[in-house]
Amino acid sequence: MDYIDYYKILDLKKDATTEDIKKAYRKLARRHHPDLNPNNDEANKKFQQVNEANEVLSDPEKRKKYDKYGKDWQHADQLDAQQQRQYQSQGRGYGGNSYSGGFGGDDFSDFFSSMFGGGGRSSRNSPFKGQDYNADLQLNLLDAYTSHKQTLTVNGKQVRITIPAGVENGQKIKLPGYGAPGVNNGPPGDLYIKFSITDNPKFKRKGNDIYIQEEIDLYIAVLGGEKIIDTLNGKVKLKVPEGTQPDATLRLKGKGFPVYKKENHFGDLYIKWLVKLPTGLNAEQKELFEKLSKL
C-alpha cells in the first residue's frame, strides 16, 4: 500500500498541536463536503482523505503509531513485538549489546536485514491485514426509510453497496474486504461507513417511531370529522372524534420507521392534533359564539 502523508493532506507540520489538527480538519471538511460539491468525485475523494487523516492524527495513540511506522501504523503492536524479540535475540547472540536508536516508516525492515544478515526477512514478509477505510455517508430521512443501492467513491474506487432500510443517525456498518489490500498476501482491510441522517421538517424520528403535528380547525375538533395526512409511505384518511382536545395524540401502530434488518417490522406513528382557532370573525359569527357561550 502506498504511503499516505496525513500531515500533507491536512496541510500541517509534524509538530502540529491538537487544536491545529481540529482547525485544519474543520476547514478542509467544509471545503470538500459532498453537499457543497455535488457530482464532484475529486472533492468526494479529498473529503474522505481528510476524514481519514483527521481520524488518525486527532487520536494521540494512533498518531504515535503513525509517526513511528508510517503506512504500517495499524500493525504497530505486531511490529513492536517483533522488534522486542529481535532485541532479545541480539542480546543473547552479541554479548548483551542492544540497539536504542529510533526509526520509522519502512526503515524497520532494512534495520533487521542489515543487523542480522537477512534475519529480518521473516518479519518483512509476514502477512498483515490491509488498512481499514472509513467513510461518512449522508442520507435524508426518506432515503433511510427504504432499502436502496448507492455507489460510493472510496480511495478512488467505485463501491456499490445496498443500504438496508432503518439505518440510524450515527450508525456504522462494516463491509469486510473493502479496505486497502493486505501486505504480503495478507487479507484486505474493511470499510466502515458512518451514516448521517439529516432532519426532516415534518417527520421527527425517535428510534423507530415517527412524530408529526397536524392542524385541525375548531369545528372539526368540536363536531368531529375526517383529516387526510401524509405518512412516510403515502396518505392516510383519519377519523377525528368529536370533542378532540388541543395537543391530543393519536397513535397509528406500524406506520412508523422500519426496524433495521427486521423485515415487515415497523415502529409507530404518533400524531399530535393542533386545534386552529378561527380569526377575523364578523359580527354574526361573534354573536353565534356568544350564544354558544351562554348555553
Rank of each mutant, 00 (worst) to 15 (best):
A81D: 12
Q90P: 03
D35E: 14
A81C: 02
E52M: 12
L36P: 05
A76C: 05
G130V: 03
D72C: 07
K46D: 00
N54G: 04
E55S: 14
A76S: 13
K68R: 15
N97S: 12
F128C: 03
K46T: 12
A81E: 13
L79P: 03
R124Y: 11
D107P: 09
N40V: 06
Q84R: 09
Y99W: 13
K65E: 10
Y87G: 09
D41K: 09
Q49D: 14
E42G: 01
Q82E: 13
G96A: 05
Y87F: 10
G130A: 06
D59R: 00
Y69R: 07
P60M: 02
D41S: 05
Q48C: 00
G104R: 04
K64F: 10
G91K: 10
Q48H: 13
Q131A: 01
K45C: 07
K62R: 13
Y87C: 10
G105A: 01
P38E: 00
G91V: 06
V50N: 10
D72V: 03
Q86A: 14
E42T: 09
K45W: 07
G105K: 08
S114W: 10
D107N: 06
G95W: 00
E55W: 15
G102I: 05
V56E: 00
S100I: 09
R63E: 01
E42H: 10
E52P: 08
G101E: 10
R92P: 04
Q49T: 03
S123V: 14
R124K: 12
N125Y: 11
R63P: 08
V56W: 04
E52T: 08
A53T: 09
M115R: 10
S98V: 01
Q78K: 13
G70H: 05
F108E: 05
D35S: 12
G130F: 01
D59T: 03
Q88D: 15
D35Y: 13
N40S: 02
Q83C: 07
R121D: 15
H75S: 13
N54Q: 12
Q84F: 02
Y66E: 04
N97T: 11
D35M: 14
N97F: 14
G117N: 07
Y94K: 07
P60W: 04
S114D: 14
G91Y: 08
Y94P: 02
M115N: 04
G102A: 12
K129R: 06
P38F: 06
G101F: 06
Q83T: 10
W73L: 03
Q90L: 15
K65R: 13
A53D: 00
D110E: 11
Y66D: 01
D59N: 15
R92Y: 00
L57E: 00
D67E: 10
P38Q: 05
E55H: 15
N44I: 10
R85W: 02
S89P: 08
D35R: 14
Q49M: 13
S126Q: 14
E61Y: 05
F108P: 00
Q82I: 11
P127E: 04
R63T: 04
D132A: 00
D72R: 03
D41V: 01
V56R: 02
K129D: 07
K129E: 10
F103K: 00
Y87H: 11
P38I: 06
F103T: 01
G70W: 02
G117T: 04
N51Q: 11
G119P: 00
